[in-house]
Nucleic acid binder design. Structure first.
Lengths: 339, 339
DNA sequence: TTGAAAGCGCTAACAA
DNA sequence: TTGTTAGCGCTTTCAA
């Protein structure tokens, strides 16, 4: 037999009707079948090397067996561990991942979500949400089960799984205050991302707790990139030379801070302390090693996948937000302010 | 109409038979249809927002519309850009990527390849090949079109797309020789990967060209990781204290070299020069900035995808190996040997 | 050029 | 518990 065996081949060999074979091979009850029949069918299937055709099954059951995973840019080092976490959990549940990279382009986001829907994905895990993302907002009101990771829209209707940035930023501010810093500035990421808003709010809150009299110094970077961090920091140093510590929106921005400090002839941490966020690979090995907040990326991915599975099974109600614990990592880029 | 529109809905609205509608919507000839009919059908489809059901089409045409992408560990920084390159090209051609991460476990490779085949992937792009990988060897003799990236089996029957490591290693050795190094050692990656073999052979050849009298010093690291590099280098320094330059199997190993040198109280590059391979993100910012070989990761992915497309179309014959140009990147970790 | 009919492989509904 | 029948939505013969 050249073609791959079908359920009819299995049924024939087992001497039963295809429907019976199908039922016998279905692990979930309750169209229950005699143990004997089940054994016969299983044996025939094994002997033939039968694998059900997912396409045909899919057409009949309306379940495609895969999930779309939409990322803004896989090259961003926070994403791969998250995607791995997603992928590991989904495969284990028999779902495959259709990977879609939007290249940070909103129109691609729309097109890809559309395409994934057309391909009958059972659900979506979306890491591309901007605060006003139209495509994501559409999902919130559609019928396609969706879980957001890391980033969310302002609407906040879809379930989100992310790191507990607020806690991390709080710990970071505490750390800097304990070191004796009076003037702590925040160089944020782009304003259209919820991560920026979340971290900035946490920064303001923490600062208000420790330095109630102080007007917070906040500068908005144009992107989560080294050049954006560099430029914003340069501006900051010009406007506020009294700053002794900078809390960066993420690690890339922190590295931009390093550059701006070097440009200004300042040394980190002796003149200015710098802290990042995410604990990207290798930031422990740059000079000086970066103090930062580690987020449980793999767990975030895994939790997002599990949340989607829950959504798909429709069983338990799903938590609207899961913020997983972050960890302060103190390294060489923060130290006491010079006097 | 709650359910999504089918070809029958379109046909009905256009006043034609479903088969006619199907033909009208098929851009590829030649069951040609009147311009008028085509227009009517297109209009009806547009008005209904019709999207053909890929599952049903797939069942009929035996083409699933996706490709499996098998990676050893997405967390390895060389991979994300490659996967992006693959993904970009495939989406553009209407194919989706099923992402499968083997976590570097051979048994998972077998299982995932099996699963991808069962899901009727049209082809595979595989980045997990070890030299003796049974699953990949099976693909070479099967009917599932497959392209390898970066790593290949010893069999060498499947088409491969990779960086031209040999050229990069050659340039690196030339660079070190020009700096005046007499004793250049090679700390490799694991022996079961073809990349290791390729780079080692290039190292030996280049060294033979420049230092014909010299027996090459080569140490095999256990893995492409920092600890493996550290351990192998420690051993090397003990056995061959006369070495003044180390060519590492990749950047991670090079960073391991840094550690071993620090352990031994040696400074890079003053006591020993170190060079890596791959130009991973941030290695330009470690201390000292790493001299390395950049590989065109995105292009490798894109070329692999294009090769698979060629294989699928069956049109042009496909090159068995495509080695894309690499670039020597000289930074601070290499310098003249001390006298 | 279009319509009719059939069937991809599977499973859900209904009968026995 | 098992068999029968039908049909998921599409495309591809074959006829007209």
């Amino acid at each position: 037999m050249a073609r791959r065996p079908t359920i009819r081949d299995v049924a024939e060999r087992a001497g039963v009707h295809p429907a019976t074979a199908s039922r016998a091979l279905d692990p979930t009850q309750p169209g229950r079948i005699t143990a004997a029949t089940t054994r016969k069918v299983a044996r025939a299937a094994r002997e033939l090397g039968y694998r059900p055709d997912p396409t045909a099954r899919s057409l009949r059951t309306r379940r495609s067996g895969f999930v779309g995973v939409v990322v803004p840019d896989l090259t961003n080092p926070v994403l791969p561990p998250i995607v791995r976490g997603i992928e590991a959990v989904l495969w284990e549940s028999g779902l495959a991942c259709l990977l879609a990279d939007t290249d940070n382009r909103p129109e691609r986001e729309t097109a890809l979500v559309d395409e994934l829907r057309a391909r009958r994905c059972e659900g979506l895990i979306v890491a591309t949400a901007t605060r006003t993302s139209a495509a994501v907002a559409g999902l919130a009101h559609g019928d396609l089960p969706t879980v957001l990771v890391t980033r969310e829209t302002d609407e906040r209707t879809l379930p989100l799984v992310a790191g507990d940035d607020a806690h991390g930023v709080e710990a970071l501010v505490g750390h800097l205050v304990k070191l004796g810093h009076e003037r702590i500035a925040h160089v944020t990421g782009p304003l259209d991302l919820s991560t920026t808003v979340r971290r900035e709010a946490a920064f303001r809150a923490a600062l208000a707790a420790h330095r109630p009299a102080q007007e917070p110094v906040v500068l908005h970077g144009a992107a989560f990139t080294i050049p954006a961090g560099r430029q914003a920091t340069a501006e900051l140093l010009r406007a506020r030379p009294d700053v002794t510590a900078i809390l960066a929106g993420n690690d890339m921005i922190a590295l931009g801070c390093y550059e701006a400090l070097a440009d200004a002839g300042l040394r980190c941490p002796w003149d200015v302390s710098v802290a990042g966020h995410n604990d990207m690979p290798l930031v422990s090995r740059v000079s000086p090693p970066l103090t930062t907040v580690a987020i449980p990326q793999h767990d975030i991915g895994a939790a997002a996948a599990r949340t989607l599975l829950a959504l798909l099974s429709g069983a338990a109600p799903v938590a609207r937000r899961q913020l997983l614990p972050t960890t302060l990592i103190v390294r060489g880029s923060t130290g006491p302010p010079k006097r």
